Amino acid sequence: MPNKISAALLGMCLFTVTFAVNLQAPLYDAYAAQNDMGAAAVTIAFAAYVAGLMPTLLFLGGLSNRIGRKPPIALALALGATATGILVIWPSWATLIIARAILGVGTGLATTAGTAYMTEILGGNRTKSSALAVTSVTSLGFGGGALATGISLGIQGPTLFPASFALLLAVAPCLALAIILLPKTHRDTNAPLLRMPLFPKGTGIFGISLALAWSVTGMTIAVVPLQLARNDLGSWSGLVIFLAIFTGFLCQPIAKRLKNNAALTVGLCLVPIGFVILLIGMRFDLLAAVLAGTCFTSAASYGFTYLAALAEISSRAPDDRARATAGLFIYAYAGFSVPVIVSGVLADILGLLPAMMLFAATMVAATLVVLTRLKRPALARCANFDQDRQMSR
């Protein structure tokens, strides 16, 4: 099979795995109402995804080095279909937690194996192109699932079995079988089955930046729809979640042209700007501001920061990209989940908007600290350059 076709098929598999992740997001409010749950319970169900994902990243990030790239991706597709099927048969807040945990395991398997596999298919000298391919399809998947469910609900009306669920259940098993057509890659049968993630030297700032950016995305996906529903704007939640990720996809070609440090800086600047605009929209019921703020945060999270971090990690760990990717996603998903859970608990105590304002203040302060740390080496290099010029005179 030609490399371009193989890359396209792998991209479809990664898209479908991530498509399943936020497929049920527009129904969070319905699941909560069905079981009379508050904001904290909804955010805990949302973050159960990370409870499944984190152990997978911690212990199975290098699994594909031992058993090959294809089995983990096929298993991830099967897990996505299983989780969706559980919600179809037993729709409730409790099964949402179970389904989200299963989806976390699938995402952990697919993203670590898929990133390494894409680089092997396209060639080790095309690290940034491979990273762009992976970030593009996964960004579309994460956002597309929520949008598909939002559209399905708009056409079908209120239901706990939208057409988007049926689509996933039909496509995922077919792709899990089709993956056998992809080319074989080298595997190390002597590699340990359980291996801890890898954190390449000098990449910590990229991981922390991605955690900050994805914390805003987590808030947008989990908490903002609850506030929209309270303002009788619940029908817009699918579009908001889609924009929270899709706009970043549109920015990735621009980010690819920048050096990784420059792209990271742009992303960090956009994170607080976007969330403050979104918060203003939530406070004054300005839907246009909510959508605009969501686009800004998406550009930061899934555009500049995501691509820069993944490309940097891949280039610094050419011999063990799967474990290095696992290490990066540990940062990312810690940011994605912890602030959401804390905000959910605070929302039940203080109210949704005060909790979001507190998060915004903390996030702005943390972003300023990271930006200062990121710029310090550049300033040091400039100072050394000026000193060398003076000495040469």
Rank of each mutant, 00 (worst) to 15 (best):
L198N: 11
P162E: 15
L177A: 11
G207M: 07
K184C: 00
L167P: 01
L175N: 04
A178D: 00
L212S: 12
S209Q: 09
L212Y: 13
I180G: 04
V171P: 03
P200R: 06
L160D: 14
P192R: 12
H186Y: 10
L198C: 08
F206P: 10
R187C: 04
T185L: 00
R187I: 00
T189M: 07
L210Q: 15
I179C: 03
L193A: 14
C174W: 02
L212Q: 13
I179V: 08
G202N: 07
T189V: 10
F199V: 13
I179S: 02
T189A: 14
L169F: 01
P192E: 13
P158G: 13
L167D: 01
A163N: 09
H186V: 10
A166C: 08
L181D: 02
N190H: 10
A170D: 00
A163R: 08
L181K: 10
K201P: 05
P183N: 07
P192S: 09
R195S: 15
L167M: 10
T189L: 10
I205D: 13
G204P: 08
L167V: 13
L167K: 02
G202T: 04
A211F: 09
T185C: 02
L177R: 06
P183Y: 05
T203Q: 14
L175A: 03
P192Y: 12
P158E: 12
A172M: 05
